[in-house]
Write a protein that binds this DNA or RNA. Structure first.
Lengths: 144, 144
DNA sequence: CCGTTATGTATCCACGATAGTAACATAGAG
DNA sequence: CTCTATGTTACTATCGTGGATACATAACGG
């Protein structure tokens, strides 16, 4: 139940609103309201996954590595959630018991199916969708 | 990433193989290979959710509260995973930033969709299915 | 060419959740 | 009345998460 996925999406959505101007980790941290080092750690993972890239030096910062419409939430999920497992299976059940010696393999199949369903849904949304949702919602609140 | 869900399914699958004979928490703990107190804590949640019931006293123990074919993995998930949220959303993003003041609501929608997809998949499997898988897998290994 | 900006990474710490363990009051069977 | 077993509480070790600091390295600009 960590917030890495949510923060990573926040970062990429933020980069998506920057029109190609590099954003420093300090700037992003200000939007997320957290530590710049944490942002850099996440950006490092996003960069390794090929979703973001960065420029060092004056005026540098992070950029999207590809079009926001090409980055899905599944990509982000895979980039930041190392083991990518929603459920854990308990270790060392009793092999002398029929349930104990088979539960892990049986559960693995069902959990993988559920995980696949989750990932398929995540794949249907892109960072561009998120950015559009944010802009739409913001114009509505601005109107009130 | 806790194992409560997996252990709870293990417990119910175990009860499903008991043919209506109450199973003590000690017995179940032996199959799961953990502590009886932990089993009782989980059984308490399963009982509150109406999935299991128990008899105190000599010869007592836990029983399924309904037919194994009527209990879905979603029921178990809801019974033991209190908050039932796969993803957490970071708190206190910066309201002065367009992304910061809208990201939570926007992410909430998408995360809820993903969560629904996960739950729909879990709802497709029952404890009876799990018990059948276990029996099938066990007879295969026994044949080798 | 040197100082400034900013990344990338390592380290340390506080906090909370998980799960293992023990203890005990209570309820039911014989 | 005794034995069994539940239901619940409390305590603890361990680990993951996220906050904070530090620093070597890289790029840009005067």
């Amino acid at each position: 139940m960590n917030t890495r996925f949510a923060v990573a999406v926040h970062i990429l959505a933020f980069l998506g609103t920057q029109d190609g101007i590099p954003a420093s980790s300090e700037l992003i941290a200000g939007s997320v309201n957290t530590n710049a080092s944490l942002i850099r750690r996440l950006l490092s993972q996003l960069t390794k996954a090929g979703l973001a890239r960065s420029q060092m030096g004056t005026g540098g910062g992070a950029l999207l590595a590809m079009d926001a419409g090409k980055i899905t939430l599944l990509d982000v999920y895979r980039a930041v959630d190392e083991q990518g497992d929603v459920f854990a299976i308990h270790q060392d059940p009793n092999p002398k018991c029929m349930v104990g010696r088979n539960i892990q393999a049986v559960l693995r199949v069902r959990i993988d199916e559920a995980e696949r369903a989750l990932q398929a849904e995540l794949a249907r949304t892109t960072i561009a969708d998120i950015a559009a949702d944010i802009a739409a919602k913001d114009s509505i609140s601005a109107a009130n």
